[in-house]
């Protein structure tokens, strides 16, 4: 709680800083609490006023309506399929490529690596128009593969794994070579088990990114049954100020946000190190 980790008593500066911290925390929490409150209010009440969310009347109707009518389950399933598929494929190809670049040598490696590193600078937006055309030609829009594939090309995961492999002592692999292990055996039996922390980092990072992806699903998944959660919710919220269903809309937001928030609370420690470690490299 002190800027310089000194050993001191709580002074006026500390009190002001603490007050600022609490104030900011309220700004961060209040909108979410308020939205959760709205989700339990009857829609007709919300048409008149959104004040007094902690006073009755309350209702669970908005959530019952979701269970009965909303497409949110299907979108959630789509999001899971896309996020998990993307995570597994990213882990597989990034780990292999990261190892290849960090620990093996082959003709053309330097040039390939320079190319991949340069690829780090390419933003999604720079290629999305031609990519959309390519996928349209190949009839890949509105498929899971179409939603999963584009992200696989981005070099971040390869770079992260490359950095990690660089940090693993070479001696261990050399010992395995002297133990007559083949290159593949070294990779799968000796090196791969050492990469679990890096896999977790990259996996969490990729999953979160895929789960929250907006632009590509927006242009690729155009059929409502292929919407991901993000896109589905976006589609329902246009013009909501005029809608009578604020409570329903908020219930949907809560319902959609809850799984990922619960996952976050469960894996908090890992997620935090994953994101910090991932971007810090």
């Amino acid at each position: 709680m002190v800027l310089g980790r000194g050993v001191k008593k709580l002074d006026l500066v500390d009190m002001l800083l603490l007050a600022a911290l609490v104030g900011l925390a309220i700004v961060w929490v209040a909108p979410i609490v308020w939205v959760i409150g709205l989700a339990f209010k009857p829609n007709d009440v919300l048409m008149r006023t959104t004040g007094g969310i902690f006073a009755p009347p309350f209702t669970g109707k908005n959530f019952r309506d979701i269970l009965a009518t909303s497409a949110v389950f299907g979108w959630m399933l789509n999001s899971f399929i896309v996020a998990i598929g993307q995570t597994f494929l990213t882990l597989a190809i990034s780990t292999l490529a990261g190892y290849g670049f960090a620990r093996t040598d082959f003709p053309g490696k330097r040039i390939a690596f320079i190319l991949v590193i340069a690829g780090l600078a390419v933003p999604e937006q720079a290629i999305i128009v031609p990519l959309h055309t390519m996928f349209a030609e190949a009839h890949l829009h509105n498929t899971y593969f179409g939603l999963i594939a584009p992200r696989l090309a981005f070099p971040f995961g390869v770079f992260l794994m490359y950095q990690y492999f660089k940090g693993v002592p070479r001696e261990i692999e050399e010992a395995a070579m002297l133990d007559n292990a083949s290159r593949l055996k070294i990779f799968f039996r000796v090196v791969l088990p050492l990469t679990v922390p890096a896999q977790a980092t990259l996996g969490i990072y990729t999953f979160l990114h895929a789960w929250n992806e907006y632009f590509w699903p927006l242009v690729s998944a155009t059929k409502p049954e292929m919407y991901t959660l993000t896109i589905g919710l976006a589609a329902t919220q246009t013009n909501f100020a005029q809608t009578e269903g604020i409570g329903f809309l908020m219930a949907q937001a809560v319902f959609a946000g809850l799984p990922i928030l619960i996952l976050y609370l469960f894996f908090q420690r890992h997620i935090v190190t994953a994101v910090a470690g991932g971007a810090g490299k």
Partner: peptide, 20 residues
């Protein structure tokens, strides 16, 4: 010959044990 086929064994500075 590859290292494994030379019939030698090596003890490394940092031991290089397989940690798992």
């Amino acid at each position: 010959l590859p290292p494994g086929q030379r019939g030698v064994a090596m003890v490394f500075q940092h031991y290089a044990l397989y940690p798992h």
